[in-house]
């Protein structure tokens, strides 16, 4: 028998959800909590195998609860059940130890499958969430200065090229049909991207990275 707790501040949802477990033989809803604090208190006295945990809660958010559980009650596995489908939230939640991530409109079959899977100590991600996590990888990056060749946009490449040719800001502006302000903006971006203070150092770096030939 898998002992289940539901943590969700919306009473109607929690009620509806527990109703769904009525005919399921290997599971039992032991408790329903409406905030994080009462759930963590419950954990001190009651043994729970799987918690269905929402993220937006009135007091402590689901990410923090998940982290606390990982430290204090590692036997209780977390199935995230939420409305949030933002990649950052999914990522953070899995990082904090959630073994499964489901959206609230998930099907009954999927929810039951997820509970059984995490109960065996494995992780469960629906295809949707899996896709989301994969897409998120490598799509955006925080770029460390001086660590790798920076990625330049088309416009920045053009400006860099003209700087390399020794043109002045005014000349570059005329050549590219843009305002001086725009050229200055691109130049400042280039300096930041290359982690340098002035144009001479910029050209030197650019040649080292083989961005200027």
């Amino acid at each position: 028998m898998i002992r289940i707790a539901i943590v969700d501040d919306h009473n109607i949802f929690a009620e509806g959800l527990s109703f769904m477990f009525a005919g399921v033989e290997d599971m039992q809803v032991v408790a329903k909590c409406h905030d994080g604090k009462s759930f963590l208190e419950l954990m001190e006295t009651t043994e729970i195998d799987v918690v269905l945990l929402d993220i937006s809660l009135p007091d402590i958010d689901g990410m923090q609860i998940s982290e606390t559980l990982g430290q204090k009650h590692p036997n209780c596995k977390v199935v995230t059940l939420t409305m949030h489908d933002e990649p950052s939230v999914v990522r953070k939640m899995t990082k904090k130890g959630a073994k499964a991530y489901l959206l609230k409109n998930t099907s009954k079959d999927e929810l039951l499958a997820a509970i059984r899977t995490v109960n065996e100590g494995k992780a469960y991600y629906s295809p949707d969430i899996m896709r989301l996590m994969l897409e998120d990888d490598g799509k955006t990056k925080k770029v460390q200065r001086n660590s790798l060749r920076p990625r330049l946009t088309n416009r920045e490449q053009e400006v860099l090229h003209h700087i390399g040719e020794g043109l002045t800001t005014q000349q570059i502006a005329d050549k590219l049909f843009v305002t001086i302000k725009a050229v200055e903006f691109h130049r400042s971006s280039l300096l930041t991207k290359f982690g340098v203070q002035n144009t001479a150092a910029l050209i030197k770096q650019a040649i080292e990275y083989e961005l200027l030939l």
Binding site: I12, E15, S56, K108
Partner: peptide
């Protein structure tokens, strides 16, 4: 997000 969303989910579960 929380209110309407939860109600819709509940309908589905029902």
């Amino acid at each position: 997000h929380d209110g309407l969303g939860a109600m819709l989910s509940r309908i589905k579960h029902f």
